[in-house]
């Protein structure tokens, strides 16, 4: 299946909105999920770090 030009490819036979709409949302959601997970892990570690720091200050 060879596309005439990149223009035709992105036009997607006139259905660009639907095809690229669904691919963009899918890719966006999946990337968002991974990014959120990485952020969530960083927040937990920071929180634990602070908790441990506070505990150590109390212990001193």
């Amino acid at each position: 299946m060879s596309w005439g030009s990149w223009g035709d490819f992105f036009a997607m036979g006139g259905y660009a909105l639907y095809v690229w709409g669904s691919y963009a949302v899918t890719l966006g959601l999946m990337v968002a999920e991974v990014v959120l997970l990485v952020l969530r892990k960083r927040n937990i570690l920071e929180h634990l770090g602070r908790m441990r720091g506070a505990a150590r200050r109390v212990a001193l």
Binding site: M1, M12, G13, G14, Y15, Y18, V19, S22, Y23, T26
Partner: peptide, 24 residues
């Protein structure tokens, strides 16, 4: 999905959404 699969007779290019719809 985009460079090997042919265009569908009835639905034209819109059918290419199935490459994520059905797996999802």
């Amino acid at each position: 999905g985009f460079f090997v699969a042919p265009t569908d007779a009835q639905q034209g290019e819109a059918y290419r959404i199935i490459f994520i719809h059905v797996p999802a």
